[in-house]
Nucleic acid binder design. Structure first.
Lengths: 226, 226
DNA sequence: ATAAGATACTTGATGCATCTTTTTTGGCAT
DNA sequence: ATGCCAAAAAAGATGCATCAAGTATCTTAT
């Protein structure tokens, strides 16, 4: 069970929500982990009310599920669900990349290149957490550059659902995780929408391979257990 | 302020949430309407807790916003936001239509045709509410047929945000709202993915015209007021 | 009559008590 | 040892009291 960052947002509810989101996206929960409102309340040092608020919000976006009315858990993802999310990401991040390529300024490009440099260093240092965070930052930067906040929110929700899977899936991936980020930047520099879209799609499909393999491995285990 | 359907779900919270969703999707709130937790609690005959739960969930998906920490309102949509949502719908409903075309059974087709027949009758009867509901049912049936539940959830959230706009936008639209549904069904019958995608895209772009005009009208009014 | 300040009210956030249902546990019989 | 049933503990749902912050209203001095 992870420890959480300190609470410093607008309200306790949203602070807890933010902390839980971070924990999910960083892969600090495992599929199947059970959450208890009272336990979390103790860990956060609040009453149960703000925790409930946060849990309900997360449950609403299916980052957490109620297996039964009193059993709150991190869901495990089926292969078909992951494939669906991947297909959605291909369409939406493709749109983001296309649009970003049309409007990207040199400052935007600089920002992306900085992220990529930091990511290279994190991978060289073997800092898995930082690596996944920077990978994520790169992906979220594209809808940002494109000026598509709604799309950004949708992707954030999808990432929340994938979080528990990526915790260790990127160990074998190594730097394959970011190889496809370079063509994205090149395409943005040339304002080449089609190339930007293709590059990010490649990244999603190939970069997601280790995740798919992990899911298949886990589903095989499920089978054998039954 | 609308009246709400009776509560009959699993829990009071989700019942209230469902009722508020229905009200939003049916366009029974207007942009700018203010919600008060205590008032809603009285209307629903519950305490404030389930209402808060529902409101927080809706706020999380941006179907309602907290203008200030104590001022809960139905947001009005900017033109750029609507255009973004439309672009996202084009990608996602396009994907749903493509996939549905590959897997649709004759039972699925029958279901779509039934919806379309009912929709024709509703329009002929001048039943605006039923018309918009059936239009929505048609759109939600495609990801259902395609077996894409995540996509369905995303679209549901987007519809929640558009709900307050469509209440009267479809009056001038008349039956233009469903003209493009026929080519969709034809494409599904032929298992023609590309045609299905194109047809639904046409429907989104052309069917959404009245909504865009309403937004432009309201933004002009906003201008003049300032 | 008007404007500024003070008072009362409104309203969401938080904490907490209680209720019902589920889950766990302990003991007993096989 | 194992499986089953009952009692106890756990846990989320609901209701409600209180708090703090914002809003409206009323008073009062000019």
């Amino acid at each position: 069970m992870p420890e959480f960052a300190t609470l410093d947002h607008e309200s306790l509810s949203s602070a807890v929500y933010g902390a839980l989101c971070d924990a999910l996206i960083q892969g600090r929960f495992q599929p199947g982990d059970r959450l208890k409102i009272r336990d979390l309340a103790e860990q956060f040092g609040t009453s149960v009310t703000p925790i409930r608020d946060a849990i309900l919000r997360l449950a609403n976006e299916e980052a957490i599920t109620f297996r039964s009315p009193r059993d709150i858990r991190i869901p495990s993802m089926s292969e078909s669900r992951y494939r669906e999310i991947r297909a959605i990401r291909v369409k939406l991040e493709g749109l983001a990349a296309e649009t970003a390529a049309q409007v990207a300024t040199s400052a935007d490009i600089d920002c992306l290149e900085q992220i990529l440099r930091d990511n290279e260093r994190a991978i060289a240092d073997g800092d898995r957490l930082k690596g996944t965070q920077l990978n994520q930052a790169f992906h979220f930067m594209l809808p940002e550059i494109a000026g598509l906040p709604v799309l950004n929110g949708i992707l954030r929700r999808l990432w929340l659902q994938m979080g528990p899977l990526i915790s260790d899936a990127y160990i074998p991936g190594g730097r394959a995780m970011i190889d496809h980020h370079y063509p994205v930047i090149e395409a943005l520099k040339r304002h080449d929408s089609a190339a930007a879209c293709m590059a990010i799609v490649d990244d999603i499909l190939l970069g997601g391979k280790p995740i798919l393999e992990r899911i298949e491995r886990e589903e095989r285990l499920q089978m054998m257990r039954v």
